[in-house]
């Protein structure tokens, strides 16, 4: 049963799983941990009957393990001021004038560079901006925008309200956009 040998999974798919997790969690220790948990879960599970490629099956487990991790983070350190009763988003006021009608800080115009070297630089700056966001906001943004998980599923899995999710995604997007303006346009 070489094919279901967890050591073979580690050797054949470990690095891929690690990159998959690292790209989304942006933390090498967390990425290592979820790879370990994924392989342990895979080993204990009897569900792999060779019906799909082992890598596809392992990535499926990995996605669940990543959601478990994010849920834990959400519980341990709730984002400050994200209570349901708050009608407005704290920290967002700086973007708008006092009566909240107009942009204080007007979004600047920028696009994705066509040139591949410049695009790489742009994406590197985006990565740095992502790393500056509170971890939970970044994780939620990734689930929604990259993994394209449905909002309802995200809320159910993470045990948060949809209002909370909308507020957090709004904050993540505002923060990323501002950071790109500062560090990409202002480079």
């Amino acid at each position: 049963m070489k094919k279901t040998d967890p050591h073979a999974w580690l050797a054949d798919h470990g690095d891929y799983l690690y990159r998959f997790a690292l790209a989304r969690l942006r933390d090498s220790h967390q990425a290592e941990d979820v790879v370990q948990e994924t392989l342990l879960a895979a080993m204990q599970s009897a569900s792999y009957a060779g019906q799909s490629a082992p890598r596809t099956w392992l990535v499926g487990i990995l996605k669940h393990k990543m959601i478990d991790l994010i849920r834990k983070q959400m519980r341990e350190q709730p984002v400050e001021g994200l209570g349901e009763d708050l009608p407005d988003e704290p920290g967002m006021d700086e973007f708008f004038d006092e009566d909240n009608r107009h942009w204080n800080d007007k979004p600047q115009s920028f696009g994705m560079p066509e040139n591949s070297l410049e695009q790489k630089q742009f994406l590197t700056i985006l990565q740095e901006c992502m790393d500056r966001l509170p971890k939970k906001l970044a994780a939620l943004f990734m689930l929604r925008e990259v993994q394209e998980e449905e909002n309802e599923i995200i809320c159910k899995e993470l045990d948060i309200s949809s209002t909370n999710a909308w507020v957090m995604l709004y904050r993540a997007r505002m923060g990323l956009r501002k950071c790109l303006e500062l560090h990409w346009l202002g480079r």
Binding site: G14, D15, Y18, R19, F20, L22, A23, R24, E32, V35, P107, F110, G111, M112, Q119, K120, F122, L123, L126, Q127, M130, F141, M142, E145, V146, R173, L176, R177, L180
Partner: peptide, 24 residues
Amino acid sequence: QLLLLREAAKRMVRLTEQNETLQL
């Protein structure tokens, strides 16, 4: 910009996933 962010985030993730120098 919001749409650009969505597209850029996907490319950013692909960049990391395809970077084979990143290993355990």
